[in-house]
Design a protein around this nucleic acid. Structure first.
Lengths: 293, 293
DNA sequence: GCGATTACCTGACCGGGGTCAGATAATGTC
DNA sequence: GACATTATCTGACCCCGGTCAGGTAATCGC
């Protein structure tokens, strides 16, 4: 990896830190310290206290004190939870909503002032470039790891995969088609973003030299990052390391993005090789294999 | 301005703040708090204490305490200034240099790990997109204001402009060609980035309907932002507001970027209209004028 | 040489952000 | 019903970053 590139990224980080100090903090902060502002913002209209603690990653003591502070200023109300006597719910009062809105307004005004110095085309260019930075950084932060066949997180991914297919296929989808742990003669990969599962993929052995890619799936919030391709590459590399020089897969005609992904990755269409009703269109690809020796 | 765009920018700011927390702080901070780390970094090898105070914008008391802290850990030495008995100089010890290098190393490692999740092309794409964001944000933060003819900051810009031309023109440049305050029948614009002058430009009246653009200059550190074009637009708009429907300007053949800028802005080449030896190539452009009425 | 200024140090103080150790009450688990 | 767990609150405490007032010594300007 080129050192220059690392230096450029660091430089950008420094640059952006400096700029952010002038944007986020100042405009969001207003007269009140940052903590309460963020909290006010995060409460939205009403929200479970436990959820707030998770989202903001705060110590329960600290959060409790922040809440009390806001309550004293009549910006929020804290109510009992209807179904759990221990839990509580924070809710913005009318004044709280006004306060949140003014904070919001101030923040927007700051950004508007900044954008004012740019032409409309440049504004769009900025937004586009930021979008690209963001997608790439998100992609970079996703980790892909092999997991055991019965891994509960992976299983949950597979079920979300199945649920999605059920809504997208006109004929629906029967989970019985999911690969059961004992069928998994290859590997199961799980993609996580900041710890949260956001995608999966598996391959199984068809014969000693052939692997079948299955259940490649990316969560809706993580689409557009290029994660599908990254997962696919991982699966291919893993299969190659296990001696599979031929990769096959089948998919449904209505999954346009998936088909485009496979074609883009060098797969070419072949005749059906399996009798799964969902494999309406099948692909194959050959790859070099690390020969033992 | 589209609200969506503002929302996108804010979103990116939030996103990046969150990411930065995981990058800059953690990796730079190490076990020691941020202040000392930044200081260690900023000292470089040795540096005047007063300079540190300016650069980091710290209270003298706070800085003094930070320095003492580092001194106690034998990371720095504070020496008397050779020429000013009041001033002092901070210098990294051998251990301090090592410490700074490990901080640096850790920061680089963090970025490297992040980039590891991306393909080389994506890494370059990231750097390029960050570069674009950065240039646009810098451009956005530049303010352009008209200043009085004799403005000292503007004058300093003009002199830097003259100094630069003197090195770039094979025949040198005589400052006598600079527009003197009493010649300035139009306007003088000064561009500032974070308060610092980074560019200038002027126009003078040739006749009631014709303005001449002069001394369009952008500091080396602010080039590539598109500031030249922005200054030119400002000058044109200002001249238009004063009834000038025809714009003229002359430049030197060796100023390729300037020539490209003018052509890109709609100027077409004309015969020489002035006898300035530096106007080797002349341009003209017509623009609509706000008619009184 | 005298007063003003400058560069730095010292000590006192402050607030924000954050952790920790219980306390309390409601809820699950067996 | 006993016991562990969970959700929140409370009070004590800590550190970092930062400000302020005052002190000391050197230097500048006249």
């Amino acid at each position: 990896m080129e050192p220059d590139l690392i230096e450029q990224i660091r430089d950008f980080n420094r640059f952006y830190t400096e700029r952010l100090g002038l944007l986020t903090d100042r405009y969001l902060g207003g007269d009140r310290p940052l903590g309460p502002s963020r909290l006010l913002w995060e409460i939205g209209d009403r929200r479970d206290v436990s959820e707030l603690r998770d989202r903001l990653g705060l110590d329960s003591g600290y959060l409790s004190r922040l809440l009390r502070g806001l309550e004293e200023q009549d910006l929020i109300r804290v109510l009992a939870h209807p179904r759990d006597g221990r839990a509580r719910i924070a809710e913005l009062t009318e004044a709280g909503r006004r306060e949140r809105d003014t904070l919001d307004q101030r923040s927007r005004a700051g950004v508007r002032a900044l954008l004012g110095g740019l032409s409309p085309e440049q504004q769009h260019e900025l937004a586009a470039a930021q979008g690209r930075v963001r997608r790439l950084l998100r992609l970079a932060s996703v980790t892909i790891t092999p997991v055991a066949a019965g891994d509960p997180e992976a299983w949950r991914c597979l079920q979300r995969y199945a649920a999605e297919l059920a809504t997208r296929f006109p004929e629906g989808y029967d989970d019985a088609a999911l690969t059961r742990p004992e069928e998994l003669t290859g590997s199961l990969l799980l993609a996580r973003e900041r710890g949260e599962p956001v995608g999966c993929g598996a391959w199984i052995r068809l014969d000693t030299r052939t692997a079948e890619i299955r259940h490649l799936w990316v969560d809706g919030t993580a689409r557009g990052l290029g994660l599908g391709r990254r997962l696919l590459h991982h699966l291919e590399a893993d299969a190659a390391a296990h001696g599979a020089g031929t990769l096959r897969l089948g998919t449904h005609r209505c999954l346009g993005e998936a088909i485009a992904l496979y074609r883009g990755a060098g797969y070419h269409e072949i005749d059906a090789y399996s009798d799964s009703p969902y494999n309406q269109i099948c692909f194959e690809k050959h790859q070099p294999v690390a020969e033992p020796g």
